[in-house]
Design a protein around this nucleic acid. Structure first.
Length: 887
RNA sequence: GGGCGAUUAGCUCAGCGGUUAGAGCGCCUGUCUUACACACAGGAGGUCACUGGUUCAAAUCCAGUAUUGCCCACCA
């Protein structure tokens, strides 16, 4: 048998077990119609490249749920995937091309797409590898890519269905335009940033008379596209001017002054220049007022030919020029600093230009209605709950969704334009002829769909929709949608809309939103800040289980997580603690093997000693609590409690006490140890899969065959609580024992007794005396006392001098330290304890006298308080007795 | 301009109606006690942001204030 290393070496075992699990096919669920499956569809990471800690968090949480449900005996499907990520990927590949001095236009569409596919192939490999290092138990046989045949068919089908229902339309409308990406963006892809710009006051001379009207604007260059000046009809200052005309300086275009309710009289001068082609409000007004549109910008945000003398200039250069020109002409009244929010491209941070263009839109209001109902009627639950309101608020104010993108990478829009009759053909399959005039001269729309359009179908497209597959029938609707709250609108909301629309059923019954992973100081991780923790590096340094522990323990849904080195270390230390507890047992088994496979089970079924009853009682209480917490999606808290039990009770007390029995070759101690370890490992397996498997397999190997059942811990049953194991009596004894040991250790430290020195001690108790005396050896070893006597209280001789007496809850501990004890100090200590006790007794007495409390508080609470009072009174009496003896 | 969080030990955070409020890290004192120094033992450290309210009972529920972070938003 090979020697087990002293510290846990994660890198030595992780890959081995992952390969084993894969080979055994544990990740692929068996369809069993008698059982309800548990299903998570993974949020597909972008093919853009590396996984970051956010991915690690998602992967860990989803793996925790999947492994847990799998161990609960449910067919558990966790379906992995990858997203083609339209803009993001195109941007990355374009950057690569730029390094080679190329650009996509030089390459042409087809060659460019080829290059992207090359990138995708490499990227997917690295993503899978990284995912596997995280220990994810997802079903790789069902892995999907958004551009796969199936999901692509789903995209086209959904598009055509919506189009046929009139829920997809093409329109020439004002939209967000990114001049760098050169594509339209949806509202969600625009980030508003507060910027201090300027408010420019410009004079527009009157056309038919002298004088001028002053307009205020933040974007003076847009004056080139002005087609009116608007004032509020109620504004007395301008009443006479309505219907008159002004001349736009320099370009000398004549435009009217019109009246419109939308104008705010208190802002600026109360007169607004109207640029319908480049401002959403102005665009709306132009529809009401029938104003012409003048586009003044090229796709790259240089000035258009229609900008006359300014054509070809960059938008910001043009702004400067125009200000100078107005100034020269004496038409610039003033410039005021002005704070306002300006839209930026989510992807490249370029300032977005509102611009009129022809795009495809989804009419969202009807879809939103059903999506709202699914949540308000409780079919879908959002965790944490507060996001429900945020979701509903967004849904209720939803605006149409621009889904066409002027990119090359993505799902091509399934629309063909006829060159002859100019009508369009919308079709799932590629048509060869126009559906109206039968002309073969048809050209497909060059644009692609917003990536999020395919994402919106992800829960059903991955399972085979639009085909009525077995998977779709069995696994849909899925169980949990786990993702970050940052994409609640981008993704979750749209999945609910499209899931309901395509299948008539909700896509999932629970939405679990996790927080964002930040650095130790709570700052966003970014390459610029150099505070990024790469999951792979963390895994290499600390191990996968340590990373998983660090990002999920003691955290709660929806709250951000600050991750730093210290947390990773804590995770690693815990793994090491488990390792060594396991190693201890394994080594013990080697010298002292358990011979009968029934003995492990029977040790747990009929515990003999108090400590065995105690640890089994504690274990079962833990199991019950863990179930409650898991059901409630409180994974971090569940994990924390297992950690505390394992370290603080099992290792610190049970194992230490059990050592005595092991030295005597007591076989039941080993059996109980094995039982508790097995259960702890199984409890912890969903959280820390590798170390638990490694230890469990070792344990299995060293126990008689058949002691531990299946071939892997990941398919072993999750422990269930045995209520008959709850044992308050043994808990009471152990609590007393622990208190005694602690008090002696404390006294030793306080009085600077050498750690190695053995001292004498006497314990006096009433009810527990006999139970404790059975454990005198344990107390001796743990507190390093010898001899120790345990007797009943009445046997204690009064009037002993120069002893240290500690009055505990159920006992007194007497340390005969002649000459070491300062009577005055002891007196003081006792007096202090007495006063603390009295205060507590007062409070309890007050409470128990309070008729409101007595009548309104539940009986269990009253009972508890009564018992507490009795226990304090008892202790007080004993304390006072000690004091009187000293004096 | 609207909305939502957060505020608990030096730091990072759990706890979210019922004992004298917890953990990890850090700090102080000891210990290589044959599973573990990635450890063990002991210790110091908190009017649970503030002000009111609800309740027999509040760190926990409600309202307001302050600080802070985030989301949404077409005032030029």
């Amino acid at each position: 048998m090979t020697e087990l290393p002293k510290t846990y070496e994660a890198s030595q075992v992780e890959q081995k077990w992952y390969q084993f699990w894969m080979k055994q096919g544990y990740f692929t669920p068996q369809i069993d119609r008698t059982k309800k499956p548990f299903v998570i569809i993974m949020r597909p990471p972008n093919v853009t490249g590396e996984l970051h800690v956010g991915h690690a968090l998602t992967a860990t949480l989803e793996d925790i749920m999947t492994r847990w449900h799998r161990m609960m005996g449910e067919p558990a499907l966790w379906l992995p995937g990858v997203d083609h990520a339209g803009i993001a990927t195109q941007v990355v590949v374009e950057q690569k091309l730029a390094e080679e001095g190329l650009d996509r236009h030089k390459l042409g569409r087809e060659k460019f797409i080829e290059r992207v596919w090359e990138w995708v192939a490499r990227s997917r490999q690295s993503i899978s590898f990284q995912h596997q290092r995280l220990g994810v138990s997802c079903d790789w046989t069902r892995e999907r890519f958004t551009l796969d045949e199936g999901p692509s068919l789903a995209v086209r089908t959904a598009f055509v269905r919506l189009y046929n229902q009139g829920l997809i339309y093409q329109g020439e409308r004002i939209n967000n335009w990114c001049p760098r990406c050169q594509t339209a963006l949806s509202d969600l892809e625009v980030q508003h940033k507060d910027i201090t710009g300027n408010l420019y006051y410009l004079h527009y001379p009157m056309a038919e008379s002298k004088g001028y009207i002053t307009v205020a604007t933040t974007r003076p260059e847009t004056y080139l596209g002005d087609t009116a000046v608007a004032v509020n009809p109620k504004d007395k200052r301008y009443k006479k001017l309505i219907g008159k005309k002004v001349i736009l300086p320099i370009i000398e275009r004549v435009i009217p002054i019109i009246a419109d309710e939308a104008v705010d009289t208190s802002f600026g001068t109360g007169a607004v220049k109207i640029t319908p082609a480049h401002d959403p409000v102005d665009f709306e007004m132009s529809l009401r007022q029938n104003l012409p549109l003048i586009n003044i910008l090229n796709p790259d945000a240089t000035m258009h030919e229609q900008a006359g003398p300014y054509a070809g200039l960059d938008r910001f250069v043009c702004r400067q020029r125009i200000i100078e020109d107005f100034k020269k002409a004496g038409l610039l009244e003033k410039i005021e600093p002005h704070a306002h929010a300006v839209g930026h491209c989510d992807r490249c941070q370029t300032m977005v230009e509102p611009q009129v263009s022809k795009q495809w839109f989804v009419k969202t209001a009807p879809l939103a209605q059903a999506a709202i109902e699914a949540v308000t009627d409780g079919r879908i639950t959002i965790i944490p709950e507060r996001f429900t309101k945020i979701y509903l608020n967004w849904m209720e104010n939803i605006r149409d969704w621009c889904i066409s993108r002027q990119l090359w990478w993505g799902h091509r829009i399934p629309v063909w334009y006829c060159q002859k009759c100019h009508k369009i053909t919308v079709s799932v399959d590629e048509p060869s002829r126009c559906s109206h005039c039968n002309s073969p001269e048809i050209i497909q729309d060059p644009d692609v769909l917003d990536t999020w359009f395919s994402s919106a179908l992800w829960t059903h497209s991955t399972l085979g929709w639009p085909e009525q597959t077995e998977d779709l029938a069995y696994f849909y609707p899925t169980s949990v949608m786990e993702t970050g709250y940052d994409i609640l609108f981008f993704w979750v909301a749209r999945m609910i809309m499209m899931g309901l629309e395509d299948t008539g059923d909700i896509p999932f019954h629970t939405v679990y939103l996790h927080g964002l992973v930040r650095d130790e100081k709570g700052e966003k991780m970014s390459k610029m800040r150099k505070n990024v923790i790469s999951p792979l590096k963390a895994i290499e340094e600390f191990g996968t289980d340590a990373l998983r522990f660090a990002i999920t323990t003691g955290t709660s849904p929806g709250n951000d997580i600050n991750l730093g080195k210290h947390k990773l270390e804590a995770g690693r230390n815990f793994a090491n603690k488990m390792w060594n507890a396991g190693r201890f047992l394994l080594q013990s088994l080697e010298t002292n093997p358990v011979k009968d496979k029934a003995s492990v089970k029977s040790a747990a079924a009929q515990p003999e000693t108090v400590e065995d009853r105690w640890i089994l009682s504690r274990l079962n209480r833990l199991i019950a609590e863990v179930h409650k917490l898991m059901d409630d999606y409180q994974f971090g808290e569940a994990e924390r409690q297992i950690h505390d039990f394992f370290w603080g009770e099992f290792c610190d007390w049970y194992i230490e006490i059990a050592k005595l029995r092991l030295s005597r070759s007591d076989p039941t101690a080993l059996a109980t140890l094995a039982w508790v370890l097995d259960n702890s490992l199984r409890l912890l397996h969903p959280f820390m899969p590798f170390i638990t498997e490694e230890l469990w397999q070792n344990l299995k190997q060293r126990l008689p065959e058949g002691s531990l059942d299946p071939s892997s811990i990941m398919i072993a049953p999750y422990p269930t609580a045995q209520e008959q194991a709850f044992d308050p009596e043994s808990e009471r004894v152990m609590d007393a024992l622990i208190e005694i040991v602690r008090s002696i250790r404390n006294a030793r430290a306080e009085h600077k007794v050498e750690a190695s020195k053995w001292i004498e001690a006497h314990v006096y108790a009433n009810e527990l005396a006999s139970a404790l005396s059975l454990h005198s050896e344990a107390i001796e070893t743990l507190a390093r006392v010898r001899p120790l006597t345990v007797s009943e209280r009445h046997k204690r001789q009064a009037g002993r001098e120069k002893t240290l007496v500690m009055v505990l809850k159920e006992s007194e501990v007497v340390l005969p330290w002649a000459g070491m004890v300062d009577i005055d100090v002891e007196k003081q200590r006792l007096e202090q304890e007495i006063s603390v006790n009295k205060r507590e007794i007062d409070r309890l007495e007050q409470r128990l006298k309070d008729s409101d409390f007595m009548s309104k508080a539940p009986e269990t609470v009253v009972e508890k308080e009564r018992n507490r009072l009795l226990s304090y009174q008892d202790k007080l009496q004993r304390l006072e007795q000690e004091l009187s003896q000293i004096s």
